[in-house]
Design a protein around this nucleic acid. Structure first.
Lengths: 238, 238
DNA sequence: CGCGGTTTTGAATTCAATCAATGACAGTGG
DNA sequence: CCACTGTCATTGATTGAATTCAAAACCGCG
């Protein structure tokens, strides 16, 4: 992880790469990052990188581009994915955290930002709008986790996968009905939702059979019936 | 919901009531509440109250005593419990929230505090330590939700119930090995963990049979083997 | 005492995990 | 260029587990 001054990072163009999914750019977070200035530590990662090092000293982290997942490896050896962070998403770190979390990079051209708690506090004391923005983003993190608790609480596996894909797609694109490139494998979905890989695959097949979704390739899906996909979890996402 | 000035609320003595479980008192949160002064709206509730009204205008809420659960009633009619809040726990509210959450009071003598976002910001701008404390508590909320995602992600129902009880007990008492009065029914546990009531009951019976826990009454349990109960979810809770 | 709600247990069914195998695909090295 | 290898995705058959349906035991309370 190398420290880079702000402005020295060149972000990949939105429409390029094909491989990396199209993610909505969050201008507010960019502004926030610039506001904090040179005290922010940026880091660039590639797919499958393990970016545990950002946790080393605690602090406040957020994603500027790409996708990162927060994982826990259980004693049994199986991996659980706790959260998937996309541009604009914050994740708070505590060096005295009870759990040995690990962080995996899911897409190329991933850029994270980090600031020590002490540094942030001294800046934000002078400029309380930083606190307010941070609060807002932290609440988004809470909503994300609450959503996921609802997903995992569904009864059937098809409902779990459906509502999961529904939330994922609504985060990946602003225009419903567009093709979405899934930034994760079936294994990742399984480890996030808490079911077996084969069950994920069967659920996706079932949803496709029902015409709820449509698959261009295994990784590229189009939501045909957002209501049925969400199935009562969401109330307003079109 | 009636507005009460700070200091006018008399909290139940720690050792009384028998019915209400013994909850660790959080002095920091009390100090925080006093610091904010008269702008805080307190409310006292009884068991089975529906305190949706606190959500009416958004803002920041926290629990001073008792237990409150955050629920969502699905279209199918089934209730999902998203979170269980105890003294010192915060829950952020947004009036433009997409979901029709509801809040249920779980114990008598429950007291909540609420402050409008605008009011809090103007106070905290003058006194940034309020922001810092609030951040710390919000992070606790995130940890709580992450913990629960791990609980729901366990494979077998016995693991789910075991790790859930483990977390619950560690929040309800500071001394491990003590008898704990569960502040919720089997139905509540089922709706929180996402399994059927009968399965919860069977899991508890199984844990008792293994000697991992011991039941004085159906609602009062003693953890005999905390390690086996947590089963790899926790790393440090004794 | 009877009543409503809670907890527990039992039996049958349904569903997901597991085991096993195949196909699709990208990358590698001959 | 093609076989080889590893990963990912899908499907089938079987086993195991949880839900469902049903009922009994228990408890606090009027």
């Amino acid at each position: 992880m190398n420290r880079i001054n702000l402005g020295k990072i060149s972000f990949p163009p939105d429409d390029a790469t094909g491989q990396a999914p199209h993610l909505p750019r969050d201008d507010n977070v960019m502004a926030f990052t610039h506001e904090l200035g040179g005290v922010v530590t940026l880091a660039r990662w590639e797919r499958a990188d393990c970016c545990d090092s950002i946790v080393a000293n605690g602090g406040i982290c957020w994603v500027l581009s790409g996708i990162i997942r927060k994982c826990l490896i259980l004693e049994s050896g199986q991996r659980r994915i706790i959260d998937v962070m996309m541009p604009g998403d914050f994740f708070c770190l505590q060096k005295d955290d009870a759990r040995p979390f690990s962080f995996e990079v899911s897409t190329n051209e991933t850029v994270t930002a980090r600031i020590a708690r002490r540094e942030f506090d001294s800046l934000a004391t002078l400029q309380p709008s930083l606190y307010r923005f941070f609060h807002e983003r932290i609440c988004q993190t809470i909503f994300r986790l609450e959503d996921h608790i609802l997903v995992q609480g569904r009864t059937t596996s098809t409902q779990k996968v459906g509502s999961y894909l529904s939330l994922l797609c609504s985060r990946l694109t602003e225009q419903p009905g567009t093709a979405v490139v899934l930034p994760m494998s079936r294994y990742d979905i399984a480890d996030h939702v808490g079911i077996a890989v084969e069950t994920v695959s069967r659920a996706i097949t079932e949803l496709r059979r029902q015409g709820v979704i449509q698959l261009e390739t295994p990784r590229c899906l189009v939501v045909r019936d957002a209501g049925k996909l969400a199935d009562g979890i969401l109330s307003d996402i079109a």
